[in-house]
């Protein structure tokens, strides 16, 4: 019980510190407050699990998870390469690339745009993860089928966002390009694609999460004996819960790094946009 008491004491202390920090208005508080919040949750988790002697089959302590993480780095790396690098990233690149090209292609015809956009909007809201079993049937158990699921999942959100972005220029800007006698290609490259970038990056950011979900879900329908989804489902079966949590840590790190990476690129590309300005 003392450990649980300690947990509550630490929680109150951290709460007090956070309230003080948040009111102080210091610049560092923007990072300090969420960090303290996160660390407090981890510490409390550890203390409560130890204090109440929760069975490791239900909820292992963070230190146990960290230990498992450190001892099975090799396995985790193999799973990471299989699921994230081969499955998710390949599919992400292909799906997003194809969607941007398709959006540019249909943009030339207003008939196609009016026909495809409502359909695309609708399909983007459907549970496309459901194609996973079909893709596994078509492309086999290895990473190709995972990449195919990811392509199907990211394509329509990306298409809709890019198409909206290509419409984002003002008539006055397009008129300016006309007075320069710019060709279609020049207008596209120098005006419309740059103007579409905030929308494209919005789509790219949505697609990062979808890509990882797709790649992991597809592994539940069949996979070689590696991959994060495979490891998670088999480890749950063996009640090796600390291994599952280690995979969750990998998934969380991969997901955040993926999203963060796209955000960094976005900042570099769309530095001119109001949402990126003034935050140095």
């Amino acid at each position: 019980m003392t450990l649980v008491g300690l947990a509550i004491a630490i929680w109150l202390l951290a709460l007090y510190a956070n309230v003080r920090l948040a009111r102080s208005g210091m610049r560092e508080a923007r990072y300090a407050v969420p960090t303290i919040f996160g660390v407090t949750i981890l510490v409390m988790w550890e203390l409560v699990v130890r204090g109440l002697e929760v069975s490791p089959v239900i909820l292992p302590a963070p230190t146990a998870i960290a230990e498992r993480f450190a001892t099975s780095l090799g396995t985790l790396w193999i799973d990471f390469v299989q699921t994230v690098l081969k499955g998710a990233l390949t599919g992400y690149a292909m799906g997003c690339g194809a969607a941007v090209l398709a959006a540019i292609a249909i943009d030339r015809s207003s008939f196609l745009t009016r026909g495809l956009l409502p359909v695309g909007n609708f399909v983007a809201a459907l549970p496309i993860v459901g194609v996973a079993p079909i893709m596994v049937m078509w492309f086999g158990f290895d990473w190709q089928s995972k990449a195919a699921v990811v392509v199907a999942m990211v394509f329509f959100p990306m298409l809709v966002n890019t198409a909206a972005g290509l419409k984002a220029t003002d008539a006055i800007q397009r008129d300016l390009m006309r007075t320069y006698a710019a060709s279609y290609g020049q207008t596209l490259l120098k005006l419309r694609l740059p103007a579409a970038m905030p929308f494209i990056f919005n789509g790219l950011k949505i697609a990062t999460t979808l890509a990882l979900i797709g790649a992991i879900v597809a592994e539940f329908f069949g996979s070689p004996i590696m991959g994060m989804g495979f490891r998670i489902s088999t480890s749950v079966g063996r009640l090796a819960i600390d291994m599952v949590w280690a995979e969750i840590v990998v998934a969380a790190l991969a997901g955040s790094a993926f999203y963060g990476g796209v955000t960094v690129i976005e900042k570099a590309v769309t530095f001119w946009h109001p949402s990126q300005r003034g935050r140095t």
């Binding site: 709460l15 956070n18 309230v19 920090l21 948040a22 009111r23 508080a29 923007r30 407050v33 969420p34 303290i36 919040f37 996160g38 089959v57 239900i58 990062t208 999460t209 990882l212 979900i213 992991i216 879900v217 539940f220 994060m228 989804g229 998670i232 489902s233 749950v236 819960i241 599952v244 949590w245 995979e247 969750i248 998934a251 969380a252 997901g255 955040s256 993926f258 999203y259």
Partner: peptide
Amino acid sequence: TVNMSVMPWAVISQTVPIVALAPMIVV
């Protein structure tokens, strides 16, 4: 305080693929 401590974690929570967590929630 809530804004500064919860909002960043809410954003991070969405970058974590939920399917990885799903079996845990069941267990």
